[in-house]
Nucleic acid binder design. Sequence first.
DNA 1: ACAATTCCTGCCAAGATCG
DNA 2: CGATCTTGGCAGGAATTGT
Length: 945
Amino acid sequence: MVSGPEVYDPLRVCLFPPRLNEQHQASGPSLFCDVSLVNTSNARFAISGQYFRQLLLSKSSLPPTAGVSYNRLPPLVPSSGLSQGVVLVLEPPSSKPFGSPARALGTLPEPPETAQILFNLSTVAYQGQGGRGTERKDKTVKHGGRAGSPQLGPNLHPPTLHLPPPLPHPSESFIPLPPHSASNHPDGPKPELICGVCHRLFSSASSLTAHMRLHRGGRALSCQHCGKAFIHNKRLQSHEASCRRALTTALPPRKKGLGLLVRHEGDVSELVGDEDHFVKVVDGHVIYFCSVCERSYMTLSSLKRHSNVHSWRRKYPCHFCDKVFALAEYRTKHEVWHTGERRYQCIFCWEAFATYYNLKTHQKAFHGINPGLISSEKTANGGYKQKVNALKLYRLLPMRSQKRPYKTYSDSLANGLLLPSSDPSAAPLPLDSRPGRIPELGLSSVITYGHPKPSVIVHGTAVSSVIVHSNQVTSGSGKSPLSSPSPEASNSQTLPKASVKPIKKHRESTEGHRKRAKLVDSSDTTEESERRSETGRFHHKSRKGQSKGDSSSASQSSVGPESKGSGPLCQITVRIGEEAMVKRSISETDLKRDRSPPPSKAKRTDSSPPDAKEPQYYFRQEVRKQGESEDDEDNLWRPYYSYKPKRKAPHHPKAPDAPSLPPQLGSQPRDQGLRTEPTETDRARERVIPGKGSPSRLSRRSLARHTCPQCHKVCKTSSALNRHVRRHELKHVPVVQSVPVISYPEPRNSTEGVDPQPCQPSDLNAEPHALLLPRGPPPPELERRDDSLAPSGEPRRGEVTGGYPVQDYPLPLIVQGGYRSGKKQDDNVLVSYPTGPLAFGPLGKMVPTGDLAKLPFYPDPYHLLYGPQLLAYPYNLAALPMALNMMAPGSDKVEPLPFLPALFNYAAAAGPYAGMAPHHLVANPSLYNSGGGGKKQRDSNNGKP
DNA sequence: ACAATTCCTGCCAAGATCG
DNA sequence: CGATCTTGGCAGGAATTGT
Ligand SMILES: [Zn+2]
Ligand SMILES: [Zn+2]
Ligand SMILES: [Zn+2]
């Protein structure tokens, strides 16, 4: 019957909860599910599952031959009304594990004549549920986007599955199906064998009887972990085993006791985890859900990482500009634009590139490599899937900059909790205060620093400015202790500016560590700085209601004292429309350091030796540039990216592939409509401070003209703006404020016209780089030191990289020893950051600017040893796999192979290394890193004793 | 339409803590 | 020191913006 894998996707299935009455039906669909149909003539579906309910597919709305074979379920929305709703799983009768790949459609066993629909419906959920109609509505809207899928044939309007209206009284056990259902189908089950409560179909009276016990409160056979009821003991036992495992996994030992079973629906058990997430166990798979946006994750770590985009508990500021990122990785990637580091080296020509993208582009253009050939699989959720035999046509060079210490566990723990800064014990120890470090900031200072200074700014309407203090985010409602402004706090904030934000790191080798720690910390964690001192530097305030005057006044008022110049740097993060968060610097005087960094104010101490207690770096420019008027504060910078919710095509090619993902929840494409839309602010993964720009961006002036009326986003071109605006229209963002953690008040209307244009100071154009200028010239000594260090130290590095053209040059940025552990950092020197913007050519190559002194980084050490011409095209990739993998054949152990050129005798070619004897690496392959994976690279990078 | 940049997330290894 | 937990790098495609 299945003539082909025709997939009509997506289809909308409208399910009417069993308990809904006709009125509800009339009001419209309560839930949409995307369903793929395969041709089958069936318009009727038998429903099986925990609870059965027959669904009728209205023929008129279906393609001539349609049958449900596959579906993609949106994740449950636990906390919302929808959650109460339905888990709908459509599967072919063959009962493939659900979540089976769409590709399998073509091979579906014949006749899913009656495709079975697993309809897990929590009858309980529908009972006593009040205003779910509204809630569902929201959900429904989200799915609307898929209706227009190109895959739908012209006459394939999204069919609608109508679930017959639920029976009024669940208690009734045997209720005949509505006329239009079973009776119409010749093969349909007899009405008598249908549960009147949940409409599940049964093949025998006995099974139905057993089933009915479930509805009568008989909980004899219910899982002790999740409460799921079973009719058969065997199944129960089996389930409990898996459930136990799942729960164990789901909750960390320490928190196991905290896991609360919230609800159980069909095969899904929902647990409450931390405040930032909840867990569901589906079929033994643990899935973590973000409480804010409901994105689902296979791992807790992924979720934790993600949740920072909402909470911003940790902030990762760029060391070169004022962008702040929610994920460390984002910052790392971003900083490449400042450093120019090129770590992706083509194995064919040894050319190195700054980004993976550039590398791929290069290989495609110059070597005819089709990226698709060597791409590795990804999970449905977009996760990385390791591929054993993946080819790597490039080498990932070790990172030049030493890694910063990880955030500490304690820190993270403390994060979520608002710790009164005054309580030293409660507050996580700053890195600096850890053993072996010099307490630069006395505890007291830390405390003071941390004193909750009211960062809340009350805007006219909503007071809800968000305050992010010490990692805590609170709404302006004043619920948080911090929310109440405390004058003294501001006073106490006499933090050393250094603590506030170090910009560039000076690395004195001697004290480099301490400093480094400081720098890193403070910088890294704005997060940390906040955490440790609760400087409250970043104030989040909603733009809404904030008028220009407001903003200025607000900033002043809220930060007034601090802003006065002598005060610690204080910034306000402002929400711009729906997209961007902008930090406004408040204290210009002290912090300002731009073009003319006030020596005195800037804490930087070029001349003075670094003192543990007095950090000597330059503060970041938190201030706008000189010449900017006060109004500049209102200048808004917005991130390049708008961070809108992703709208992924319904059928993500990969989605089907992820067997590992739990069917309905985990495998959902990340942007699938189901997840609640986070507020725009939540989406701002990156924040930018006015006055600074990302290196790659154009001047803001040009941007000014194309501002989205809705969200204030500024596009460079009108076309971009048009596109952007269209998104708003399509998106139809629900008004639902689903952001529990951060409540940004939001009315951006009031602000409109206020700061929109400010984004483009005219002077920016003149000196694009001015904004990016590092906080100050690096101490001369630094460079020297680096040089000296590089050669002598880091033996390991030499070994690893020896012979490679890359990064074998003296690396001013790399410090001897590298980072080992927080305790030993004193011995290590950190990477120095460039003092100024670096010029880069296309593809990330650095362009010599003429002033080498100012280009401490990557003076283009990547000489091409072998031109592309050295390799005949097309390449015989088949002959290279071994080399490409850089693994010794056959051995279990991963043995790095000699660099490709050496293997293939390319080395003879002219070039700086032409005269080199056989690549020494060949002789001693174990010395170098295979480059087969970043992790390995990293190993070499981290000089371990 | 195409190029370029940023976001995203499963996986994994190293760092940080805990005991 | 080992066990446990956290952090962040990585791939590489999706999403989005720039041209
Ligand atoms: Zn989220
Ligand atoms: Zn930057
Ligand atoms: Zn190449």
